[in-house]
Each structure stands twice: as C-alpha cells, then as structure tokens.
C-alpha cells in the first residue's frame, strides 16, 4: 500500500550553492507516514523539523530527493494538507467562526455550507458558544483548539502539527493533548507531529522518528506498541511508556554527543 506521506532521500540547503553561508538543514532523510498513522518527529533544536514541515506543505521544495503524498510528488501547496503551528495564527479581526471558515474560502462552496461546516467543527471542539467571539476574548488553549477546528474544516487527509502545544502551560497542554488525540483518531487522519517533547511524542503517536542535530537525518525510528492512542493521559500512566521515553532520551543523548 502506498504510504500517505513519504520522504525519499530528502536534503534541503539554504543559501547560494557553493557559498560559505550555505546551511544544510536536513540531509538523506527518508521516512513514511502510513494512512491513519500518527508519526512523531523528535530531535534536538535546529534539526530541521520546521524545514520538513514546510517541504511537506509545499511551501518550498527539497534540494535533493522527493516528498510524496499518495505516491505523487509535492510540487506546491496541496488542498488535502492541513497545517498547524505553535502560534494559533488566528486572524484577530475575524470572529471564531469566521476563522474556522478561513481555509474553506478558496473552495467552491456556498456561504451557508461553509458556515455549516465551521459550526460542526466548533461543536466537535466544544467551542460552539464562542462562535461570535473574537480571538482576544479566548484563552491560549481555546485559541489553539480553534486553530485545530480551522485545520480540520477543510477535511484534510494529512495534518501537519508543528509543536502545537509548546506555547501552552502544563495543565492546558495535557487537556489539549487529550482532546487533539481523540479528535485526530476519531477522524482517522494521517498526522505528522513535530515536537521536542519526548513524553508527548510517545503518548500521542503510533511511531516515532528521531532526528540528529543539524544537518538533521534519521537516527532511530520505532513503533510505539501501546494501547490508548486516543487517550494520552491513560497511556502516560503505563509503565512501558517510560521505557520508550528513556529510549528516546538515550538516542538523542548519543546523537548530540556525536554531532
């Protein structure tokens, strides 16, 4: 079966070719995300995690190798890809529901249909009563949930999450990890979760890809063979979880020492 997402021998360098300031962000990078799978990518800071995300979302192409979605090479932004960052990127001049509709505005949909989809997404994240509020009236956690609703409103097949919880306080983070996990596994989406939080990588994913420091390349990849992918809190209480976290810790420590 063709994987949902495949990175095949990808390298990306910034700056002029041959210039001394040319920086290689990632090199010889290969991994896949199967349909319905949530893959976490962890690595030390500067390992090119955001570069991967931008290449998969089609904002720029790799210098070498290829990024494939459903077996087809990514040449530019694709409508089946959703994208979420640490920043919620809500438009402050729009109400919550108008923000959720944002991604739908380039689809050929009647206005009423857009509104209906957005309302359904808000219901799913349980923020329906805030539909007509403005972002500044919401807490950080609520705003990030609205960002998820906006991401899911376009019915993506692949969702890219770039450290979506790292700007939140510890408690909000736990609540959001739980609600995101439930929502994502219910909808059966394929996800790429970029994170620097090792615990988060283990409790939220089906598989973990570990990158080395710059230039980033895969140093380890393993499946998280644990139940409760839709409930990170339940998973975090399992003794085996700590063994996976320790494995990550050891791998990254070695990778850092080698770099």
């Amino acid at each position: 079966m063709t994987p949902k997402l495949e990175l095949r021998g990808v390298a990306k360098a910034f700056g002029e070719k041959g210039s001394p300031t040319r920086v290689t962000a990632v090199r010889d990078l290969s991994f896949t995300v199967a349909a319905g799978e949530l893959v976490a990518v962890v690595g030390p800071s500067g390992c090119g995690k955001s570069t991967i995300l931008n290449m998969v979302s089609g904002l720029y192409g790799p210098s070498e190798g290829a990024v494939l979605i459903d077996g087809a090479e990514v040449k530019g932004p694709r409508s089946e890809v959703g994208f979420m960052l640490q920043k919620d990127l809500l438009l402050p001049w729009r109400t919550v529901i108008e923000n959720v509709e944002f991604g739908l505005e380039t689809r050929k949909l009647p206005k009423a249909e857009r509104r209906r989809i957005a309302r359904a997404e808000l219901r799913r994240i349980r923020l329906e009563e805030f539909a007509d509020s403005y972002p500044y009236q919401l807490s950080g956690g609520m705003r990030q949930r609205v960002a998820l609703a906006r991401t899911l409103a376009i019915s993506p097949e692949l969702v890219l999450l770039d450290e979506p919880f790292s700007a939140l306080d510890a408690q909000t983070k736990l609540v959001l990890q739980k609600s995101f996990s439930r929502t994502l596994s219910e909808s059966g989406l394929s996800c790429l979760l970029i994170t620097h939080d090792l615990q988060e990588a283990v409790i939220m994913s089906d598989r973990v890809v570990v990158l080395s420091g710059r230039p980033g390349t895969v140093v380890d990849t393993f499946a998280v063979d644990l139940p409760h992918r839709d409930d990170p809190l339940a998973r975090s209480t399992l003794p085996a979880t700590q063994a996976y976290v320790k494995r990550l810790f050891d791998t990254l420590h070695i990778a850092e020492g080698a770099a």
């Binding site: 931008n54 960052l85 380039t106």
Partner: peptide, 9 residues
C-alpha cells in the same frame, strides 16, 4: 506565517 497559512490554503 499568516501569509504561509493562506498560501497553504
């Protein structure tokens, strides 16, 4: 990032 978001859409 807002511009990139719009481009992704």
């Amino acid at each position: 990032d807002l511009v990139n978001l719009a481009r992704v859409y």
